[in-house]
Simulated assay, not measured.
Amino acid sequence: MRVAIAGAGAVGRSIAGELLENGHEILLIDKTPSAISVERVPRAEWLLADACEITSLDEAALQRCHVVIAATGDDKVNLVVSLLAKTEYGVPRVVSRVNNPKNEWLFNESWGVDVAVSTPRLMSALVEEAVSVGDLVRLLRFSQGDANLVELTLPPESTLAGIRVGDVRWPEDTSLVTIIRGSRVLTPAPEEALEPGDELLFVAAQAQEERLEELLSARHGPEHRPATGGQDGPRNT
């Protein structure tokens, strides 16, 4: 897979190194001569150019790229690169770095962004994920479909403890992706029973996050026990 990375700073070089280790073809683009450090990522291609200029992107042959990553420290630049990559070159997948969380609302499909990665928000989410039990934590936002990757650690008092995955009526536009139980990563098979302490990862529409948290949390009394499949059969959307 060919990947172009706009921004050859510490972030861009780190991403390039990881992707090269996974066997991908990498092009690093930066307009600052001092950022062109070929010796730091010798297996990558390098281009001294302004990634906001069409002539530069033509030289980079962006239409040949499967993925473009806008990884500069300037949100305005990242938005322009994302928009050009998607609209002018038809790049299938555009990932963009968000430096200022206040600008996160701009990083959507209108600007050509498929996935927006906010480092401050991600770090905050990882802290919350490490210490929160019973609260829904948003880990990653997907621009397409207005969906998020969210996590919740099932509290001991949850009314879902002991219930099989296939018997839970999950909210609409919600999919349980995996269950992390101790050192194990489990496929959420219908017969798998949920246990207190399970770390549950979902892809869910943002509009359904509140319902999902209510379903999974310990805030239900016995009279509010969540519905299961029953005679109508399971529903795992």
Rank of each mutant, 00 (worst) to 15 (best):
I163G: 09
H24I: 04
F202Q: 05
G197T: 10
L215N: 02
V137I: 12
I54S: 14
F142P: 03
T228W: 09
A8L: 00
T237M: 04
E128W: 03
E39W: 12
I36R: 04
T228C: 10
R141E: 12
I29L: 08
V11P: 02
R169G: 07
K76G: 09
T153C: 10
F107C: 07
Q144C: 13
I29K: 02
N78K: 07
L154H: 06
L201P: 01
L215S: 01
A49I: 04
L20M: 00
F107P: 02
I163R: 15
S82T: 05
G182N: 01
R184Q: 14
T32F: 01
I26L: 00
L136H: 14
A51M: 06
L79C: 01
V115H: 13
S217V: 06
L84H: 06
D30Y: 00
E109C: 05
I163Y: 10
R93H: 11
S132L: 11
T159I: 13
S132E: 11
L84D: 10
I54P: 00
K31V: 11
L28G: 04
R138I: 13
K76T: 10
K31S: 10
V131F: 03
D114R: 03
T187L: 10
L47F: 02
E213F: 01
S132F: 10
H224M: 13
A227D: 15
L27A: 00
S183W: 01
E214I: 13
T72R: 02
R164I: 03
L136A: 11
P234G: 14
L62R: 00
N108W: 12
R219A: 09
L57G: 00
P33Y: 12
V185E: 02
Q208Y: 09
E199Q: 14
T87C: 07
A130I: 11
I163Q: 14
W46Y: 02
Q63I: 05
A85T: 11
V137S: 07
A85W: 01
A16Q: 01
I36C: 06
A16T: 04
N236C: 15
I5F: 04
S110K: 12
V165K: 03
D58V: 12
H66W: 01
L201F: 09
R121Q: 12
R141H: 14
N103G: 00
R184S: 07
P196T: 06
E59L: 15
T72V: 04
L194P: 04
E195H: 03
E214G: 07
S118P: 00
P222N: 10
L28Q: 00
R93Q: 08
Q63C: 07
A218E: 15
T72S: 05
R181E: 05
E109N: 11
N108E: 13
R181D: 02
L84T: 09
Q144E: 15
P92Y: 08
P155H: 02
P190F: 06
R225V: 15
L126D: 08
T159F: 11
G90M: 00
